[in-house]
Design a protein around this nucleic acid. Structure first.
Lengths: 198, 198, 198, 198
DNA sequence: CATGAATGAGTTTTCATTCAT
DNA sequence: TATGAATGAAAACTCATTCAT
C-alpha cells in the first residue's frame, strides 16, 4: 500500500517535528528511538526518512530553528527601546515569557548541545553567543552610562541567563504563580544585584 | 586465565567509577556504552559486572553519593554560623567552590535525572530538595529577621541555585578569573538582589 | 504536477539503461540501488517504474540483449568465410574488438549471471552456449580437416574464450597497446597452441 | 543464556569462515547477509561480532589470506626448478591444481575485488601483482634464453592466467576429465603458443 | 576477579516497490 | 509520465547483560 487514504505530507512532517521534540525532551536525544517516533506519528520507521535526512539532522534543525527564532523575537522586543535600564527590563520579561511558553524547546536546547556532531555544535554555539551578546551589550552600555553597577559584564551575562532560564526546570503553568508574578520576582532579583549603590 | 597479573579489585572499581563519570559527562547516560567504559578501564565488558550491578545502578550511585556528600559538606560549612546574612554568604561561597571543583558530577547530576528509573529518580529528587531547603531556610530566616528582602522565598531559592550552578557551564580553571573573583562577583549579584531597600 | 517540462519518455528510458549499466558495472547488481539510479537520471525512484518493470528485469534485459547482439554480430562477421583457420582468425579478431569496446556490458555479463533468478539465468546461459558453440564448431571442423590440432575441443573452447575475454580486466584505451596489436598478440597465443605439430 | 554448553570459540570462528566463503561465493558480497550467515552457523547475528570486526573485514581477510597462501605455495612449487620451460610447466600445473581445488576462494577473489573499500582493494591488488610477476619473470627469462617466443610478456602473462583461471567457471570434479587431463590440455594450449617457430 | 562467547532485543538506516494524485 | 509519501522487510551493527570456564 502506497499512500494511505487521507495521508498528507506536510501534516506528517509537522507531526514528526512535534513528536520528535517531545521524545527528545522526555528521553534525551540518545534515549529517543526513531521507532518510537514513527509509532507515535503512525507510520513505519523507514517512512520517517521521507521527511528527515537523519536523526542528527532532526536535532540540529530543532536547535538552529529555536535559536534563530529566539534571537529574532528578542530583537523585535527590544526595537525602539533606548535606555539601558528599560532594555534590561525588556530582556528579562522577554526571556522569561519566551522560555515559559517553550519549555521543551529550551530544555532540549540546553541539554542536547552535547549530542550534536562537532560541526553542528559549532553552529548552534555561535547562535547562542549571538543571543547572549544582546544582554552583554545592554549590561555594557548600562555600565558606561552609570545606570548599572555590573561587577563583571561577561559573568553577569552568564549568571543572569542561567538564573532566568532556570525557570523551565520547575515552572508549572497550573502552579501558584502566574507569568507576571514570576517576571516581577526575577526583575527584583536581577536588577537589584545590578543597581549602583546609592 | 582468571585474574590478570597486577590487577586489583578495588583499583578496578575506582577506575570504573572515574571513567564512568567521565563518559556520562561526555556522552550522557544513554549515549555512554559499557563497552567503551570497559575498554577505558582495560577489562572485558562482562567483567564490569564484578563491580557494578547494572548500568542504571552506576548512575544512581553517582547521583545519590553526590547529593549526599554535597549536603553533608554544606552542613559542615554552615555549622556555627548564625546570622542569616553570614549564612547566605557562606552558602554562596560553598556552593560555588564545590561546584567549580566537581563540575562533571554537577553536570551529570543536573542533566541525567531524566535517565533514572522512576523509583530512583524519586530518591535523588528528595535529596536535592533537602539541599535546596537549606537555602530556603536561610532566605526565610533572613526575611523574618528583616535582614533580607526576598520577593518569594521558594522562587528565589530556585533562582539563586540556578544562577550559581550556571558556572559549571562556562568555568575554565585556566581562564581569566579565579575562584575568589567568581565568588565575589556572584555575591554581589545575589545579595544585591536581596537586600532591603534603604 | 505530472511531467516535468522538457522531459521525454524515450530519452528517460535510455538514460536509465545507460546509468543502470554503469551502476551495475561499478557496484554489482546487489550493490546498485534504484535510488542512486533514479538520482543520476534525475527522477524520483518511483518514477523508474514507468520504464522498468523490476530491478531484476533491468538486469535480465541487459544480459539477453548483450548476448543476442553479440551472437548476431559474430554471425555477420563470419558470413562467407569458409576455411576453419580463417574462421578462427575472424573469431579471435571479432571477439576481441567487440569486448574491447563494450567492456562494461561484458564485465556485467560475466559477473552478474549469479544475480539472475533461476529461470532468467537459464535463458542467458542458453544464449551463452549458443555463442560458445560457434567457436566449438570452428575448432571441430579444423580438427576434422586437419588444419588444427586441438587437444580437447570443449575445453579449448572454454580456454580460448576465457583468455580472450580476459582483456576486459586490464585493457586501457589510452594504454601502451592499440587494438590491432592486442589482436595480433592473442592470435599468436591462441593459434600457436592449436597448430598441428610439423 | 551465556555460553551454550559445548560451544567453542575457535570452532565458531572456523564455521563463520567456512559459511561466509560459501555465501559470498553463492550470492556475492553484497548479496550475502550476515543474518543468513549467523543462521547457518547457528548463532545470533550479533554474536558474529565476537569473531569478526566487520562484514568488509571478513571479505578482506579472505582475499588477503588467499593471495598470500597462493603465492607462498607457488614459491614452494617452483623452488629448485631452474629452466624456464620447466618453470612454466610447473606454473601451469600448480595454478591449475590449486585453482581446481579452491574454486570458491578463486571465484570470490576474482569477482569481489570490486566490493573492497579502496584501501583494502589496493592491498589485495598488490598481492595479485606479486603473484602475476612470478609468471611474468618466467616468460621474460624464457624469452631471454631463447627457450620461448613470447609476443608480449605483460599481455601473455594476463592472457595465460585468464585462460588457466577460467577452469573454475566450468570444472566439475565428477565430470568427464580429471585434473591430470585438464592439465595436459592446457599445457599444450599455453606452451604451444609460446614455443619458438622451428 | 577476569575472560570470551553468547543472547535477544534493539539501533539507525536502506531498499525495492506501490499507488493516489 | 512524474511526484511524493508510504510500506514492510531487511540491512549491518550495538547494546546491556549472562555465565561456563
Amino acid at each position: 500500500m502506497a499512500r494511505k487514504a487521507g495521508s498528507d505530507g506536510s501534516k506528517t512532517a509537522e507531526a514528526i517535528r512535534a513528536a520528535g521534540l517531545r521524545l527528545i525532551f522526555e528521553h534525551g536525544y540518545e534515549g529517543m528511538s526513531l521507532r518510537d517516533l514513527a509509532q507515535i506519528v503512525g507510520i513505519q520507521p523507514g517512512s520517517l526518512y521521507n521527511h528527515i535526512t537523519t536523526k542528527q539532522a532532526l536535532l540540529f534543525d530543532f536547535l538552529v530553528e529555536h535559536m534563530t527564532r529566539l534571537t529574532e523575537a528578542l530583537d523585535a522586543a527590544l526595537a525602539g527601546i533606548e535606555s539601558p535600564l528599560a532594555r534590561l527590563d525588556t530582556f528579562i520579561e522577554f526571556h522569561l515569557r519566551y522560555h515559559l511558553t517553550r519549555r521543551m524547546e529550551v530544555f532540549v536546547n540546553n541539554s542536547e548541545l552535547r549530542s550534536l556532531e562537532p560541526q553542528n555544535r559549532a553552529v548552534v554555539t555561535g547562535l547562542r553567543r549571538d543571543y547572549e551578546r544582546r544582554l552583554e551589550q545592554i549590561l555594557a552600555e548600562g555600565t558606561r552610562s552609570g545606570a548599572l553597577n555590573v561587577p563583571d559584564v561577561t559573568i553577569a551575562t552568564f549568571a543572569i541567563i542561567a538564573q532566568l532560564t532556570g525557570v523551565v526546570g520547575w515552572y508549572d503553568p497550573k502552579g501558584r504563580l502566574g507569568e507576571d508574578e514570576i517576571i516581577a520576582i526575577h526583575r527584583q532579583l536581577v536588577v537589584g544585584g545590578l543597581l549602583p549603590i546609592p
